[in-house]
Simulated assay, not measured.
Amino acid sequence: MTNASTSLPLGSRQSSSFVIWLRSRLPARWYDRHLQRRDLSEVDDHLLRDLGLTPQDVRRECAKSFWRT
Rank of each mutant, 00 (worst) to 15 (best):
Q14C: 04
E61I: 15
D32E: 01
H46K: 12
H34N: 01
I20Y: 05
A28N: 06
L40T: 13
S65H: 07
G11C: 08
W30N: 03
V58C: 07
F66Q: 05
L40F: 08
G52K: 11
R68M: 08
T54A: 01
L53A: 10
M1V: 15
G52P: 12
R59I: 11
Y31S: 06
V58P: 02
L35K: 00
L26D: 09
R59N: 12
A4G: 02
R68I: 09
V19E: 10
M1E: 14
S5A: 09
W30P: 04
T54H: 00
L47N: 14
R13I: 07
Q14M: 09
V43E: 11
K64A: 07
V43C: 09
T6N: 03
S15C: 09
T69Y: 02
E61C: 06
D50H: 13
F66Y: 06
C62T: 15
R49F: 00
S12I: 14
W67N: 01
Q14Y: 06
D57Q: 06
L8F: 01
L51C: 13
Q56L: 13
Y31Q: 08
T2E: 08
L8W: 00
R38Y: 05
S5D: 12
L51R: 09
D44S: 14
V58H: 03
L53T: 14
D45C: 03
S15Q: 15
A28Y: 06
S17N: 11
D45K: 01
S65K: 07
S12L: 15
R68L: 07
D44N: 15
L35P: 00
L40I: 13
T2G: 04
R38P: 00
G11H: 10
W30A: 03
C62L: 07
F18R: 14
P55L: 06
L10F: 12
P55M: 05
A63N: 08
H34Y: 04
A4D: 02
R59S: 14
N3F: 11
S15D: 15
R49K: 05
S24V: 10
L48I: 01
L53I: 13
R59V: 12
S17V: 08
P27G: 04
T2W: 03
H46M: 11
W30R: 04
D50N: 14
H46E: 14
P27L: 02
R37P: 07
S5W: 08
A28L: 09
T69A: 04
G11T: 12
W21S: 07
G11D: 12
V43K: 06
D32P: 02
R25T: 11
Q36R: 06
L22M: 13
R13P: 00
L35S: 02
D44H: 14
S7K: 01
D44G: 15
L48D: 04
L51K: 10
L51E: 12
E61H: 05
S12D: 15
T54Q: 04
R25D: 11
G11S: 12
H46A: 13
L48M: 05
A4T: 04
L8V: 03
R23S: 13
R37V: 09
L26M: 11
S41C: 11
G11L: 15
P9H: 14
L51D: 10
Q36N: 07
S24Y: 08
D45E: 12
R33S: 02
F66I: 11
R38L: 07
T2M: 06
W30S: 00
S65I: 03
K64E: 13
C62Y: 06
T54Y: 01
S7H: 02
Q56C: 08
R13S: 08
Y31P: 02
